[in-house]
Design a protein around this nucleic acid. Structure first.
Length: 417
DNA sequence: ACTCCACAGGAATTGAGGGGTG
DNA sequence: CACCCCTCAATTCCTGTGGAGT
């Protein structure tokens, strides 16, 4: 018997479950897309452009819908000689300021004109003054000329740093642009992002607003079904697997992305188990695994000091003294950080880390108040299994020692399972 | 109704670390 | 090389606050 053996594949075309895959048709978003079409109409009519603001939670079809509309817009606009149209897409997922977005936009414009790549020739993300970046951006836009539809995906990452959103729509009126007519489409996951913007930006960016609501279970099912059909061989999906994925995703987030991931991962799980059919148990397994991997990812992204705070909390958890008061946690943190990090941070900063981790869903925080006796304070505990935290942190060299000791403490107190 | 505990968390500032131009 | 730019964790300083005790 070899190590490898041929397996019958239950997948047919697994690509359709891939993150990258673009459906031909956007399902269940008829009304939203009609509004979108109306908002884009002025491009074809060569009339004054309105900026568009799209919002809705992740996986509600905002990006897919936008891609779809732009594709059609581009091909349909070709019919008219007097419509000169280009589109640029800027994903802002790792960009936290207007400055960075402007640089990314400059690079995206270059990419779209000269073809992809040369990392060397890209504008670097720091070093210039903001004005220098904007000047270059306006120059490049003018070089392209015509109507330029600029999409900022996940624009809410920039927070209140909205200089670009202020400047871009006004650039023409202010004489920075001669040839180009820019139009901005902002896509946001945050409903309240709008409120963070300064009022003058708000009413220019949000001339047209379209809301993409979460999908319900039925809608998810009808999105999933055609994909499931293509992705898997016939009769591989047991019973209501698709419905189950839809229901779980609808319950949680109403996100099509989540539903698709569930189905995809359930399929892979079945393959790994050498099962011939994808069953509900595979879906449930997939759900756990997805949740877990999100948590792990969140933990990985923390800084060293964040890890130090987390490991301190893990220590209390191992002792079974788990909702810990910030004050006590901080005392212990100082001992631990002294050992694993080159310095210790101030209490205020530890509170900030705890609050970040609470946002990430790694930590639960309860507010308590005992009046004149003990005042107002907070208590914290892990939301994640202690096991998981120790596994992730234990893989970092500098934490190995502490994690080992915490494991022993936990064993003594029976806190691991 | 008022007091007063013991923090929570906002705002402004700093400094190291990425990088730029000439 | 001298001098300037943006970013982000960390620090400093501070005002805000919910309810037990009076």
């Amino acid at each position: 018997m070899g190590i490898f053996e041929r397996r019958d594949d239950i997948f047919d075309d697994a690509m359709v479950l891939d993150e990258e895959w673009q459906p031909q048709e956007i399902r269940k978003r008829k009304d939203e897309l009609e509004l979108y079409r109306q908002a884009l109409q002025p491009v074809v009519d060569n009339r004054p452009l309105n900026n568009i603001f799209i919002y809705g939670k992740t996986g509600t079809g905002k990006s897919a819908g936008t891609r779809y509309m732009l594709e059609h817009l581009e091909s349909d606009a070709m019919q008219y000689d007097d419509v000169e149209l280009s589109t640029v897409w800027v994903g802002c997922e790792n960009l936290s300021t207007s400055y960075q977005v402007a640089v990314a936009l400059v690079n995206a414009l270059r990419d779209s004109r000269t073809g992809l790549l040369p990392e060397r020739e890209k504008m670097s993300a720091t070093g210039y003054s903001q004005q220098a970046v904007f000047d270059r951006l306006y120059d490049d836009l003018d070089d392209v000329g015509g109507t330029i539809v600029i999409v900022f995906d996940e624009i809410d990452n920039i927070g209140q740093s909205d200089d670009l959103l202020y400047g871009l729509p006004r650039a023409r009126a202010n004489g920075y642009l001669e040839e180009a007519r820019p139009m901005v489409i902002g896509i946001s996951n945050e409903f309240n992002f709008k409120d963070d913007l300064s009022p003058k930006v708000k009413d220019t960016l949000c001339e047209e607003e379209i809301l993409f609501p979460p999908y319900n279970a039925d809608e998810l099912t009808s999105i999933l079904e055609p994909r499931a059909e293509k992705a898997f061989q016939d009769n591989v999906l047991e019973g209501d697997v698709v419905r189950l994925c839809s229901a779980l995703a609808a319950q949680d987030s109403g996100s099509a992305r989540q539903a698709i991931r569930l189905l995809s991962l359930a399929g892979k799980t079945a393959v790994n188990n050498r099962d011939e059919q994808v069953a509900p148990k595979h879906v449930h397994h997939a759900k756990k695994e997805l949740a877990q991997s999100q948590v792990v990812e969140g933990m990985e992204q923390l800084t060293t000091q964040g890890h130090a705070v987390l490991v301190t909390l893990a220590y209390y958890s191992a002792k079974g003294e788990t909702p810990v008061r910030t004050r006590d946690l901080y005392q212990q943190y100082r001992n631990i950080a002294d050992e694993v990090a080159s310095n210790t941070i101030v209490e205020r900063r530890v509170r900030a880390h705890l609050s970040d981790m609470s946002m990430l869903g790694l930590v639960n925080t309860y507010g308590r108040n005992e009046g004149m006796k003990d005042g107002r304070y907070k208590e914290h505990e892990l939301t994640v299994a202690l096991e998981t935290v120790l596994d992730v942190l234990g893989s970092k060299e500098r934490f190995q020692g502490v994690v080992e000791r915490i494991r022993r403490v936990a064993a003594k107190n029976n806190q691991l399972n």
